[in-house]
């Protein structure tokens, strides 16, 4: 049986709050670049981008990131070596403030991979991390700056973030 832990309203609210917090802590949206981690992180990033644009009338650049080849559990290095990690390679991230966006923060290994990928692209001024769900059980010293909701979960449980764009509904379920 899966249980709804965040409904669509709460998800909307969390993204709204994270958006405002990004403005608060970044002192505006100058030099801001959003990096959405595939798959669902990208959609969340897009929603934050939309929100920022609604508020400030400026479109913040957004980059999609596929971290597969940077993962420490990637066993197929050969095959993935030629994969393109970023959807946008021309973007200059030097001295920019990057907000890395993902749906769930768990062991921290995905984020580590993302940091590695970003590192290859340039030297940003700062990288912060926004996640919809922080479920604990970190295996690396990584901490989110913006959190939709902390859900202290058991490792046996499965947390699933569904987004309207691909899943037809906005909901976070725990199984």
């Amino acid at each position: 049986m899966s249980k709804v832990v965040i409904d669509s309203m709460a998800m909307q609210r969390a993204l709204t709050r994270i958006t405002y917090e990004i403005i608060e802590r970044n002192k505006g949206i100058n030099n801001l670049v959003l990096v959405g981690i595939k798959t669902r992180g990208v959609y969340l990033a897009k929603r934050i981008q939309n929100r920022l644009e609604q508020l400030e009338n400026t479109s913040v650049p957004i980059v999609e990131l596929d971290v597969t080849k940077y993962r420490d559990d990637n066993k197929d290095k050969e095959k993935t070596n030629n994969q393109v990690a970023f959807s946008e390679n021309n973007i200059d991230i030097n001295n920019q403030n990057i907000v890395l966006i993902d749906d769930v923060l768990y062991t921290g290994r995905t984020v580590r991979a993302a940091l590695g990928a970003i590192n290859e692209l340039g030297r940003p001024n700062r990288i912060s991390l926004a996640v919809l769900i922080d479920r604990g059980h970190r295996e690396l010293p990584i901490r989110a700056d913006f959190v939709g909701k902390n859900i202290p979960s058991s490792q046996k449980e499965k947390i699933q973030v569904l987004v309207n764009e691909i899943d037809g509904k906005d909901v976070v379920e725990i199984e």
Partner: peptide
Amino acid sequence: ADIFDEFLESINSKRG
């Protein structure tokens, strides 16, 4: 009315 939730959630976030 869920603006009250938003308020309480922003307290959580601040506390975090």
